[in-house]
Design a protein around this nucleic acid. Structure first.
Lengths: 349, 349
DNA sequence: TTGAAAGCGGTACCAC
DNA sequence: GTGGTACCGCTTTCAA
């Protein structure tokens, strides 16, 4: 006999194999434990619990397996499964670095929910400060099947993710990125709509509120750019989300003789409008104010707040796009404009 | 030479081994690929890339490995690693079923972010409709090291999670659950504080806004109960978050002769206050209104909105608790009250 | 109808 | 200093 089994050399045929590994008390039960208890093989356990249609297992056996599984409280191990399968159902989404507004965070929530319904595992990954392309490496370790890339992830990051097996990489942001499907959300459009309205009302100089809150400039800058693109004379007005600063800005508005302000969004608009009114200015008489996002609160203010309604794709819709791309990874990267901005004129302009 | 490799029996010394598995073009590179390219073993690759301190690897070898890894764009496979390690760094959090208010969602965001910083992988899991204890099984498949259990997960669910290896299970909710650390957030307290204030102002009958929006009753019901607990005569006022319904409720308030309303939170309070005022009632003259959450907008209303400030633990704090529990899983389940409610009286009451 | 066993990708122990 | 290799838990041929 030439062939020698590695663990049990023929020279010592009597050497008992390591005692059938008894899952230690307190250890997490595995399919092997279930198999042992049911008196079948691990293969059979797998067949039964996954309802493998290619294999017919007798009813008594099925019952024994199910009972054993229940008795042990067996739960399959997702990592082991996907390691074997060679792919996961993980969809990676970035955690917004700053508590986003109600509009956007509502959108993300809906998306997440819709993905869950499609049986994906949604993993929210903090961009932990490290640059996008660097974060990509950390993300790739999870072998996500799809990724909603954060703004700031460059082509290299995308490439890393795709090479690691991501079937769909989708960027949500102002500009398309190489080799990724792009859902264009160009906030310049928001500024443009607001500014054109104000221009039409005869205001050439427009104050533009720029939130001092970190993380918001990603939205604020493009909105400002959009205002400028109309040819209006845009005056940036840095504003922290608190009353004192609002009072300052309000007085600055008077000094500058600004007749119109685009207030970034409805919440900042509310803050500013209050400050302007408290300073004795009439809205829209002395200064016109327009917000964005079309939140409920705008309708409740007096004067009612003019705003720019932002249309985002529904989470369900986006989730289905993800699903489609996962199923058909060959699809050519597609660039689609998904953000609409329309004027909602009320009384404040 | 006695030992014979199992794949190449001595009988067929000429049988060529399956051609050294060449990672197919386009396949995700593994540590074996790196090893081959660097001309070393997988073990060495592992040592080098993990900076294993127990093993000294020569500098030239390290360089070769690093270069090979970079050239191939190698990224380790998290599932394989944690399968081997026997544990993950996954922390599971429930996705709120309904877009939570700014206060709570801000808290969750912060928590998530703090956990990321502590090097945990945060997985947001949708409760996908299935009952808590059922969801627990799905959750357990990920073998999370810690779980923030959603309200509605019973003791059985907790048990499943723990048996699957979760070192820390923490419930955030109104009541403690067996065998889990409990962060008590008892919203009755909010109702109690509001009601006691109104009682002190001489109102015995108190309207209590109950959002019609699904998912919010988890908070609304306890708040109502808190009002009742003071002995006040609570009148539930179902209210959808829209102007028309608010007008209805406002007129109902007149009919019922309600002199005071606790409006669930500041946003509903704003909505209702507007409707009440539009109906010709004075606030607080005819009807006193108090909200909750102490949002900025309350300060901007006229009259300024009285409210109940809710103190939540900081996300950082909770993240550190999670981390501590993970490190010391033996710790006795602890029940802690983490929600403070304090009156902020302004002008609307 | 069932079982034996090869691996998925990494890690870490033990030899050399 | 390095290499060989068992093993983590599961799926899936291939044989019996």
């Amino acid at each position: 006999m030439v062939q020698i089994p590695k663990q049990q050399p023929a020279q010592q045929p009597s050497a008992p194999k390591a005692p059938a590994k008894q899952s230690a008390r307190g250890a997490v039960p595995t399919s092997a434990d279930v198999a042992r208890l049911a008196g079948v093989s691990r293969a059979t356990v797998s067949y039964v619990l996954n309802n493998t249609s290619a294999v017919r297992i007798s009813e008594p056996t099925r019952r024994r397996v199910h009972e054993a599984a229940k008795e042990l409280g067996y739960v399959p191990h997702a990592a082991a499964r996907s390691l074997r399968a060679g792919h996961t159902r993980i969809v990676l989404m970035p955690t917004p670095e700053v508590p986003a507004g109600p509009l956007y965070s509502g959108f993300l929530n809906e998306l997440q929910w819709a993905l869950s319904r499609l049986d994906y595992t949604v993993v929210q990954y903090g961009s932990v400060g490290v640059g996008g392309d660097d974060a990509a490496r950390a993300w790739a370790e999870l072998r996500p099947v799809a990724v909603l890339a954060p703004v700031g992830m460059g082509p290299d990051g995308i490439a890393v993710l795709k090479r690691s097996g991501a079937k769909a990489v989708i960027t949500l942001g102002p500009a398309p990125v190489e080799d990724a499907h792009a859902l264009l959300m160009d906030h310049r459009e928001v500024g443009r709509v607001a500014a054109e309205h104000l221009l039409a009302r005869g205001h050439r100089r427009i104050g533009v509120v720029m939130p001092r809150e970190e993380g918001l400039d990603a939205f604020a800058e493009p909105r400002l750019a959009g205002v400028r693109a109309t040819g209006a004379d845009a005056v940036p007005l840095p504003l922290a989300y608190e009353e004192e600063d609002a009072a300052q800005v309000a007085s600055r508005i008077s000094e500058l003789g600004l007749g119109a302000v685009f207030a970034y969004n409805d919440e900042y608009a509310m803050l500013l409008m209050r400050a302007v009114q408290d300073a004795g200015c009439a809205v829209p008489g002395d200064v016109a104010v327009i917000g964005a996002d079309d939140l409920m609160l705008g309708r409740l203010l007096r004067p009612r707040l003019s705003t720019v309604r932002i249309d985002l794709p529904s989470g369900r819709e986006l989730a289905e796009l993800v699903d489609r791309l996962v199923r058909d990874p060959a699809a050519e990267p597609e660039v689609r404009d998904v953000m609409g901005a329309t004027l909602v004129r009320r009384e404040s302009t």
